[in-house]
Design a protein around this nucleic acid. Structure first.
Lengths: 151, 151
DNA sequence: ACTAATGCCTATAGCTACTATAGAGTCAAG
DNA sequence: CTTGACTCTATAGTAGCTATAGGCATTAGT
């Protein structure tokens, strides 16, 4: 199986496969005479494992550990359940954060109906008012170096 | 006001202020004899506007446009409401995505109670099973080049 | 056999929004 | 007059890819 075939089978991009190899997630595969990478079923399974982990929001270095664990079956898996637990907490926190952001955005939307100039537009005015943003709300005590949500 | 004072007043880091200047969000301020940046009330307001936008999940280039609009009040603000609308949709989509992810993670959590080896751990097994992931579910038809959620 | 298209190779730079580091200059207090 | 806090610039690093350039390998068509 050449890299393009593997890409088609898994839905992973060719460049991404090479990237995973460079990052040590996939072992350097054998090569053909013409120096093409050649993959087998095991490589495919490993890649699919990686992709499945990615879809679960795992970071590459977490996946790396999971892959090591996968090939050394003698150890205790408690940390895996802990990892999943941690991710669930993380997801919960993100959802809460987004719900809160949504509230603010809806407030923002409600503050202008459109058709205004930069000075009179309610949204622009709201964006300029710092103190206005819910002072009572704990979530709005933006930690000074906390990450800002991006899209 | 020196850069450190501005940082303290706004809660923005010194390096970030310099970064915003480099990116054209803040105008290069005046300098003291010793080549220190010197800021005034207007700069502070502009920075606070930027920070407020960031907290609403706006990207830097979106904020740049908003800043231009802010200083050219003659134009119509409809696109601003559109922008906010777009962000709300985006947030909705992200929340849905995270809820879905959470479901999967909880499934994962439920598939092993801990104390297993790499081979018998239910989580590891689930992560290896690609097809298992809800085939019927539309959200699981991961678009080939769609962004993967990260934390 | 020749050619064109496609696929593959490596290496490097770019993306976002910062953050960290190094090495040097400026300023106020003791 | 020295110490320490603050500031300056320039450069590199972060995550997880993506894009580009320039060059081989293979294959389909003529």
């Amino acid at each position: 199986m050449k890299i393009g075939d593997l890409a088609k089978k898994t839905g992973c991009k060719v460049v991404t496969i090479r990237y995973y190899e460079k990052e040590g997630l996939l072992a350097p595969p054998g090569r053909t005479e013409g120096n093409y990478r050649q993959y087998g079923r095991e490589d495919q399974e490993r890649l699919e494992f990686i992709m499945h982990c990615r879809r679960h929001g795992m970071k590459l270095d977490e996946i790396k550990k999971l892959l090591v664990f996968r090939s050394h079956p003698q150890r205790d898996c408690t940390w895996v359940t802990d990892l999943v637990e941690k991710h669930i907490k993380n997801v919960d926190e993100q959802i809460a954060s987004l719900e809160h952001l949504k509230m603010h955005l809806e407030q923002l939307r409600g503050s202008c109906a459109g058709g205004h100039s930069g000075e009179t537009c309610g949204i622009m005015r709201s964006l300029g008012n710092v103190g206005e943003c819910c002072a009572s709300c704990a979530r709005c005590g933006h930690p000074p170096d906390g990450p800002v949500l991006t899209f």
